[in-house]
Design a protein around this nucleic acid. Sequence first.
DNA 1: TTGCGTGCAAAGGTTTTGCATGGCA
DNA 2: TGCCATGCAAAACCTTTGCACGCAA
Lengths: 141, 141
Amino acid sequence: MNYKTRQYGDIVSFLQSKKGCHVTAGDVCCHFEQSGKKIGKATVYRQLDRLVEEGVINKYLIDENSGACFEYVDRENDCHEECYHCKCEKCGKLIHLECHEIGQLSDHLSGHHGFKIDPKRTVFYGICSECEETGEKVGGI
Amino acid sequence: MNYKTRQYGDIVSFLQSKKGCHVTAGDVCCHFEQSGKKIGKATVYRQLDRLVEEGVINKYLIDENSGACFEYVDRENDCHEECYHCKCEKCGKLIHLECHEIGQLSDHLSGHHGFKIDPKRTVFYGICSECEETGEKVGGI
DNA sequence: TTGCGTGCAAAGGTTTTGCATGGCA
DNA sequence: TGCCATGCAAAACCTTTGCACGCAA
């Protein structure tokens, strides 16, 4: 997977345009189907895998009933080593965290549990304040 | 789902015997198939749903390629609400965390960021001590 | 007896794989 | 030209659903 094909470029562009949102493999297929330039399902999955490996996008497991979702990694607004993310399970909002307290947890984990946490892959799932106020039930897992 | 059927009892016993381990629906089916008293797939899924609702087990989404996994809730040693998990990206080992420090983080998130973290969905990814010593490069997910 | 639980098979998703063809470098 | 990427269909998974039958209460 090194060639820059038309499909590769199109998929990256689409994900970029969805910066800050979670997109499933199905969404990608659907988008290109509707916009005329259809891309095979298998290609979409293969390119998404490639992009995850390249660090261009991240892969998350949130809703168990709609498959994995992907999100473009914004390298400009990043967020180097110690940036973590909170994802609202309800509205999908992504909160960027760069606070001290997580550093403490990270230190504790490595000190007491010998576990070196990986900020790139770790996402805190939960409910954001707005959704907490609005609705109440979180729905089954 | 109120009756205490043979299948219900058998499934609970099995999950109890696997206390501290994560078990998939497939594992449950497989176990009963091998031990002679086969239980239908549909029944396994329905009973697991029931048990989650009853709070007898918890449901986690960890490994994207093997479906949801379940774990018996030990009410005596109470690892219920505040039990988090660390997953080694390299060897796949799962570490159960019930320590104080995570409670602090959880408090901080809700206090300062208005974010209510969900232990059931949140998994800390990283590298465990053994893998850290042995090799170095992190493979895929 | 009543109605929930069971089991089978079929259907519904998402994701992967095999293979011939297409296209980048 | 040499490979890798593509696309289609089929397969592999996990999970849910429909329906007739079985069994707990």
